[in-house]
Amino acid sequence: MSTVVLLAITGLGLGALYFLVASGLSLIYGLMGVLNFAHGSFLTLGAFAGWEIARRTGADSWVTFLLSLVLGAAVGAVMAALTEFLLVRRLYERHIEQVLVTVGLGLATVALFEGIWGTDPVFITGPAWLEQTTSIAGARIPNDRFMVIFVAVLVLLAIVAFLKFTRFGLIIRAGVENRSMVTALGIDVRKAFTLVFAVGGAAAGLGGVLASHFFGYVSPLLGGSLLIFAFIVTVIGGLGSLTGAAIASVAVALLQQFANFYAGGTGDLAVVLALAVVLLTRPSGLLGKKA
């Protein structure tokens, strides 16, 4: 029983990380039709920014931890907004080229991070509470799991509230539904593009800081390894659907954890298999629009 609880909560934590990456991917794809290959770099940069500030101000205080979260999100948002403004915008409506530009950015930035911070993982510590465990139903669960889940739920609620109750959210939702109609009504959708990139980048940067506590290290390849599963999550959930991304994140991460434990480390293969099955039965994903 305790194993099941441990696996389930660790799976939820991993799912929360996937969601933080996939939510941005899904929003960006839904509004602009761009699959952002540089999204992993937003996450990595956020993680390194969080680590840098923790290193300078003492890693074990809560203030530092909160500061690193804020800084990680801000750095991710700025980098994402710049990416949209300087690169993606110039290739408006040319989707293949937009993907290519993000591919190039992804490759270049990972190399740059390796140049700056080295290729080896940097091990990190956080506030003492995060290092401890809590007992639930006999299972000793590391506290960072709860933190990751808590923040991801907050982000989900914040994004949903933003989309539902603000004017920009309205424009973004309308843009996902029918972009040419929104443009025809005289609304400048391009502002929404930058905004969506910034929101996605902030979620990824936040995910980066949390991922570095979850795994216990930062490395230039952190983003890339999460990005592949975030892609799978996005496609399974249905491209452009936030709820789909949330459901798929949890499902994929749980499947991965349980298959890894009970089926001899076949978690990654099980996820790939799940992707194939979902796409063959529902090509547009669980909650995607009919293609």
């Binding site: 950015l105 992804g106 270049a108 190399a111 740059l112």
Partner: peptide, 14 residues
């Protein structure tokens, strides 16, 4: 970092 230079070159070409 060769890959940084190649990636940048690639972005410029695109």
């Amino acid at each position: 970092e060769p890959l940084f230079l190649l990636g940048t070159l690639f972005i410029l070409v695109v």
